[in-house]
Design a protein around this nucleic acid. Sequence first.
DNA 1: CTGTTAGCGCTTTCAG
DNA 2: CTGAAAGCGCTAACAG
Lengths: 336, 336
Amino acid sequence: MATPAPKPLTMADVARHAGVSLATVSRVMNGNPSVDPALADRVRAAVASLNYTASPLARSLVSGRTQTVSVVVPDLGNPTFQAILRGLSRAASRSGYHVLVADSAEVVEEEEVLAVASRRRTDGIVLCAPRMPEERLATLLPELAPVVLVNRDPRAGVPVVAADYRSGLTELLEHLAALGHRRILYLAGVPWSASNAHRLEAVEDFRRANPGARVDEVPCGVDFDAGAAVLDDVLASGATAVLAFNDLVAMGLLSALAASGVRVPEDVSVAGFDDIPFAAYTSPPLTTATVPAEELGEKAWLGMSGLIEARDAPESVYLRPRARIRGSTGPAPSAR
Amino acid sequence: MATPAPKPLTMADVARHAGVSLATVSRVMNGNPSVDPALADRVRAAVASLNYTASPLARSLVSGRTQTVSVVVPDLGNPTFQAILRGLSRAASRSGYHVLVADSAEVVEEEEVLAVASRRRTDGIVLCAPRMPEERLATLLPELAPVVLVNRDPRAGVPVVAADYRSGLTELLEHLAALGHRRILYLAGVPWSASNAHRLEAVEDFRRANPGARVDEVPCGVDFDAGAAVLDDVLASGATAVLAFNDLVAMGLLSALAASGVRVPEDVSVAGFDDIPFAAYTSPPLTTATVPAEELGEKAWLGMSGLIEARDAPESVYLRPRARIRGSTGPAPSAR
DNA sequence: CTGTTAGCGCTTTCAG
DNA sequence: CTGAAAGCGCTAACAG
């Protein structure tokens, strides 16, 4: 019963149907006011009766605009990027734009290839590539313009949308200090990522301001497994509180801790970062810093749309995470 | 310092540079063997030295293929759709395809508009529209072909990729029965969704097979809040076990239960559905049924790619969820 | 084997 | 105000 492919209509069909020229149809479809109302109506009628829609492809080819933007993320399985994509996608959609998404599967080389390939089919690209080395990024950028960077260090000419990880971690550190913790462990993420570097700055600030406290760093990954794998280091460190690189790591650690009978927060306090949707539902609920990832996505679209429309200057945006205190952090154990 | 937009090269530039005709460049770029190796090399050299890439837009216009597929989901914030998108995106990427994603924000009308608009820019569409009424879907389908449906009832001519919710729920129900539960509550999701209907069938099967047991249905939503909101109904029902529509609902209920001092599973057992990545990390860990959503995404791509290449017949795929028993379900309380 | 010539479906001068 | 005509950048006959 399947109709044998109702070959899509072209503008010529409409023109014929309405008894006007191609150009007139085009004008009407683009809302060009310089068309006789009577003719315009005839055209609209034809369009309606034929159920015609212009080929986006053809109009893109001539106009040079695709009404689409690319987004490249390292992992669609990461709640933070999911939220960014969601915010971006909904915002872009409101402006009639489409979103082409690419998941680089955490492979940096792939990231570059995808970005370039993806960008060629769209009007601009939002790049989430936290671990791409600065140099590569620098050479890549001209090829990608217009581009908005997410969670990278600021640079001339390219708007950046990022969370201020430094102040977020500072709040968390101070929260821990106020609870009496003097031995703190920071589970570092990807060493060469901007957000890790900023967290490290916060750690430095804190050390300077609290000479009596000690903060150690342990290299760690960025996901569940990484958090679970670092259990022994945590136990051996003698720290009374640990700051995980992100919520995923914290949750991995939390479950490893629970499995080995260590109580949280009685024996050790644990804090995450990002405030992903599930952070409130762990046991105990996770203390963390809220990163409004969805808003980052919206801001990224704002930046992108600014660049595309060449409206305003590409202004960078920094969102400030706030400490979100829940049950996984508590007073430092006195007896030690 | 920004280079003033290095207007992208065209094939004509390459042709000139290599001293050949447009057609020859095109042939070389498309790996057409009927080109003199010497010429071909000259062309390749020109392409390399100019760093030329063909315009995807132009080649799409003429070839009628965009190397892109659309995906429409009701909510990019839902872990199940996230996983589907991830699986699909990675699979498509391996075949050199791009993915255009649209989030309908749970608005059914929007779903149709997005699907149509989105589809026009791609070679096919994967539609996740669980709550779209059958009739609307039926009229929409011809306009969208080729299309792969996710989690919908089978139909002629359109491949469907779905989880077998019925057998999944049956396993869960039997697990509960084996634990001695005789009063069970099912928190129903969207009434007119196929997956809800199938769960209801499982409930029916179970009632027939277990006349001594009682299963009641309570209408409910599909997210955290819906699960939390249904707390009073759960308490009032006198049920010793509740089957949530999905993990999100189960988690919402879990936290509401915890907040009101009801112990899980001692006082009441709770099971979810989907086995989202966080289900293992709730407290207690959530008993659920595993839906391999990422695999659904991969299969969806397989189906899509089959349709596009007109290779194999569009065979539907049904993945079978398995009960994943964790700590949130336990023996029915004896005293009641 | 290679170049010339039509278009793909639409926008946009440029005349009338 | 409207139509004819020239492309956008590329592919695919169709001749040589």
